[in-house]
Nucleic acid binder design. Structure first.
Length: 236
DNA sequence: GAACTTTCCAGATTTACTCC
DNA sequence: GGAGTAAATCTGGAAAGTTC
């Protein structure tokens, strides 16, 4: 099976998954009281951007969590980090220093709109004080707007936290399969895709908001593992 | 050292249960 | 059904830990 055919099967599996869980969700419509699996892999799709075949939304980011021994982080814990704060001091903002997805989206917004002078510290360091975070709040809100509007799916993969977990395997190999980095592009990104403005060559060339695994080879067996995971996934 | 993930904690919110 | 209470869960925020 060539890469084209594998991608067709992957997206066909996403169609199955969507039917299985009752449709894609958006983070703006989700909360932690929904019945999320404790652990899993999530797939964000581009909003309004379709594959070359014209009827399937284009995958834009793959992620997971609990890939360290002993980790207790849940799937929702990770998703809400990407979603950002709903209320409080940083209402509708978030913390891009806790979510590389947020950081990369914000960085691309800075590039696209020439905001370097306004946000010189964006992405610098692993924490920031209150004053700096308030200065960055407007951009955090724009990032939240962008991410909360992306349709996403997830699969339940609840094995023990470890770098060798099934979650890590799925994440790594789905990224490797979809990535256009070093490949003849399949489903090339729309010219308006925000990721074209990031400084990360891996994001621009892979067509994904991912940096890790975009230049790796894909194990074809991952498609069977995705199929198995769909069966184990319930609607929240 | 940079990039990214996980942990911790205090306070807020929701749910479940009991009693009237 | 409504009020009160306890338990469970979620939240934002900050910083430490892990991996490469």
């Amino acid at each position: 099976m060539d890469r084209d055919a594998r991608l067709d099967r992957l997206y066909s599996l996403f169609d199955d998954l969507e039917r299985h869980v009752g449709g894609k969700r958006r983070l703006r419509d989700c909360d932690g009281y929904m019945d999320w699996p404790d652990r899993g892999v999530y797939f964000f799709f581009a909003n309004g951007e379709y594959r070359a075949n014209g009827d399937q939304l284009r995958l834009t980011r793959v992620g997971t969590h609990a890939v360290s021994e002993g980790s207790g982080t849940t799937l929702w814990n990770r998703l809400r980090t990407h979603r950002g704060a709903l209320s409080g001091t940083y209402e509708d903002g978030g913390n891009h220093r806790g979510s590389v997805f947020r950081e990369r989206v914000g960085e691309a917004l800075v590039e696209r709109h020439g905001l370097h002078d306004e946000y010189p510290q964006w992405g610098h360091g692993s924490s920031a004080g209150r004053d700096l975070r308030l200065e960055e709040l407007d951009l955090e809100r724009r990032v939240s707007d962008y991410i909360r509007d992306l349709p996403f799916l997830w699969v339940n993969v609840d094995d023990e936290p470890s770098p060798d977990s099934d979650r890590a395997y799925l994440e790594r190999n789905v990224i490797a399969l979809v990535s256009n980095y070093g490949e003849d592009p399949i489903d090339p990104r729309d010219a308006r895709w925000l990721g074209h403005d990031t400084s990360s060559e891996k994001i621009r060339r892979s067509g994904l908001w991912n940096v890790d695994h975009v230049d790796e080879a894909c194990d074809p067996a991952v498609l069977d593992r995705v199929s198995e995971a769909i069966v184990e996934t319930d609607s929240p």
